[in-house]
């Protein structure tokens, strides 16, 4: 479970990237985080995996106040979260297999275990046939799927994806979302930032809308009204 209590973030004084956010996400939920560009979606995601720190407020993950996690223990939090970055952040000189394997390599996983897990992650996104390519030599949609495979390979509790369909046409976007649904069906919490309104219509999920750093609507709340 992820909880935000009065969370604000200011990169610059008097400018709120996030303003007094209160939020609760249950384990296994599938959430769209939406809002126009500059609304604060990326910032909110970065707060969850502690790449940024809130100016005010507390964030709890499974009842642990992540503000209080020391730098030395940060890796534990990061290992429990799979992140799909907007710009993929793949290692350009490593093969797709190696890229997907990174979260396991850093844990010192044995090669046999590693190969098995990488293979199943690549199967999930339908990319086993591309495992020996380097990222440059595959399409944007395929790079996106490599990033997803890398996020899932370490068995995280939460997956965060920032504009995962940003550069893709509708057909490919739907395919990616279907992969996310499949991952979600295993009980993994999904938080997906997107400004694509069509997608939100096609996949009826809980939608959290940000505007100028404020949380202006929450699907579950809307339903209550």
């Amino acid at each position: 479970m992820i909880e935000f209590y009065h969370v604000s973030k200011q990169y610059v004084k008097n400018q709120f990237a996030l303003n007094d956010i209160n939020l609760s996400i249950e384990k296994g939920e599938f959430i769209f985080l939406t809002g126009s560009s500059g609304a604060g979606k990326t910032t909110l995601l970065k707060l969850i995996f502690k790449e940024q720190h809130p100016t005010k407020g507390q964030i709890l993950i499974d009842s642990v106040n992540i503000n209080l996690i020391p730098n030395k223990k940060l890796y534990k939090l990061r290992r429990s979260i799979g992140i799909v970055f907007q710009d993929f952040k793949l290692l350009s000189k490593r093969t797709i297999h190696e890229n997907v394997a990174i979260p396991l390599i850093i844990r010192g996983e044995r090669k046999s275990t590693l190969d098995k897990q990488v293979h199943s992650a690549l199967s999930l996104v339908g990319l086993t046939h591309r495992r020996n390519y380097i990222p440059e030599h595959v399409s944007g949609g395929e790079q996106q799927r490599v990033a997803i495979a890398r996020a899932i390979v370490g068995n995280p509790k939460i997956i965060i994806a920032d504009e995962p369909t940003g550069n893709l046409d509708t057909e490919l976007s739907i395919e990616i979302l279907k992969i996310f649904e499949r991952i979600n069906s295993n009980g993994i919490t999904m938080i997906i930032a997107t400004h694509d309104k069509n997608l939100i219509k096609i996949f009826p999920k809980r939608v959290i809308r940000l505007e100028k750093g404020r949380l202006i609507s929450d699907w579950s709340k809307e339903e209550l009204l």
Binding site: F49, E51, N71, K72, L74, Y75, K76, L77, R78, R79, I83, F85, K89, L91, I102, P103, I106, R107, R150, G154
Partner: peptide
């Protein structure tokens, strides 16, 4: 630098 950043984001320890 970029590689280090990625490694940290996927949960590498400082010592790693």
């Amino acid at each position: 630098k970029d590689e280090i950043h990625i490694l940290k984001l996927v949960g590498a320890t400082n010592w790693y």
